[in-house]
């Protein structure tokens, strides 16, 4: 391996890391602004122009707060909980393709940290670890409400991961590959997977709400019942990590949704742009398009949160096991039959 590729990948990793962090930061502001807009309020507008510095102020405040820890038998696990959540939220983005390629310094730069051939499996593996952060944090808090929330989170994530996985299987039948770069390339033109897999897309979308613990599936936090749930006992930046991880994973799951189903960085007329404007400009536009798609999904996350009530625990389980999983299985069947007939 020559040094250039090392530098190239390091730069990409740094940029992706920075973008994820920055997005997570500004999503907190976006959430508050969107909530304010939906609820006829103004929202944060004191720190900087239009509240633009609010996330920095929040971060500073969290760092300056007392690091309280409850009288728990296991301090190590108490710290480990938010750490896992944060780490997982950040490493998921490693396999995501942010664009096709740029042609700089006489070489092709693939806009992806790592193009591994089991990219999709990697994402699933990482996502299923993310529940440990909440579980360990909730358990180590030594608080009944936190424990209850941890149990809810665990059962919810495990159940919804199944439906999510099944909806992906139908997609894999079509794409025949697990590499995210391949999947993105296949959707060139208007060949987006959402047109072939509308049901799969819907199931995946619903499940990603559950995976990120967002309303209407935010039973783990559920302020009115569990007083904040797993982060009840956390303070200062440890709590900040949990909140931050939630936003980071929202960003990542929006990215996954756009890449898998909404054509990733592809946009109509991309081939024409490559021919006429060159690879670089076409791909920079592609990155922006991907970004816009991601922002759309993030907006829907927030829109839903400020509109819908949340499910009850048993209703959530019913929806997952009795509706989404059979639907996903049906989707697999239909996809398989159609593929077989078209052969």
């Amino acid at each position: 391996m020559d040094n250039t590729i090392l530098i190239e990948k390091s730069v990409i990793i740094l940029v992706v890391f920075a973008i994820t962090m920055l997005m997570a930061m500004y999503m907190t502001l976006a959430e508050r602004k969107i909530a304010a807009w939906i609820q006829d309020r103004i929202g944060p507008n004191r720190a900087g122009k239009g509240g633009i510095l609010q996330p920095l102020a929040d971060g500073l405040k969290l760092f300056a707060k007392e690091e309280y820890a409850p009288d728990t038998p296991n301090k190590f696990l108490f710290v480990l909980g938010p750490t896992i959540s944060m780490t997982i939220a950040l490493i998921t983005s490693a396999v995501l393709p942010w664009g096709d390629k740029l042609h700089l310094f006489g070489r092709d730069i693939i806009l992806q940290s790592a193009d591994i051939n089991v990219g999709l499996l990697y994402i699933f593996a990482v996502l299923s670890v993310s529940v440990y952060g909440i579980m360990i944090g909730g358990w180590a808090s030594n608080n009944k409400y936190s424990l209850m929330s941890a149990m809810r989170a665990a059962s919810q994530m495990i159940s919804y991961e199944i439906a999510m996985g099944l909806s992906i299987i139908a997609l894999l039948l079509m794409t025949q590959t697990l590499s995210l770069r391949e999947i993105a390339l296949q959707q060139n033109g208007m060949n987006w997977n959402i047109f072939y897999q509308p049901l799969g897309f819907l199931i995946f979308w619903i499940c990603s709400f559950a995976e990120t613990n967002r309303n209407p599936f935010d039973l783990a936090e559920c302020e009115q019942e569990l007083i904040g749930g797993y982060h009840t006992e956390y303070s200062s930046m440890r709590m900040g990590f949990f909140l931050f991880a939630e936003y980071a994973s929202m960003f990542v799951s929006s990215a996954i949704l756009s890449i898998l189903y909404l054509g990733a960085y592809n946009y109509p007329g991309m081939d024409w742009a490559v021919e006429n404007w060159g690879v670089n400009i076409a791909n920079v536009i592609g990155m922006l398009v991907l970004f816009i798609k991601i922002c759309f999904f993030i907006f829907v996350y927030m829109w839903v949160r400020w509109t819908l009530p949340r499910f009850r625990y048993d209703q959530l389980m019913n929806l997952g096991w009795k509706k989404l999983i059979p639907l996903a299985l049906f989707n697999i069947l239909v996809t398989a039959v159609v593929i077989l007939l078209l052969k």
Binding site: I38, Q39, D40, R41, N215, P216, D218, C222, Q224, W306, T307, L308, P309, R310
Partner: peptide
């Protein structure tokens, strides 16, 4: 009741 089921928005609409 809306707030306790997790929907805060209706609450703020009528609270004005």
């Amino acid at each position: 009741m809306g707030v306790d089921t997790g929907a805060l928005t209706g609450f703020l609409y009528v609270f004005q």
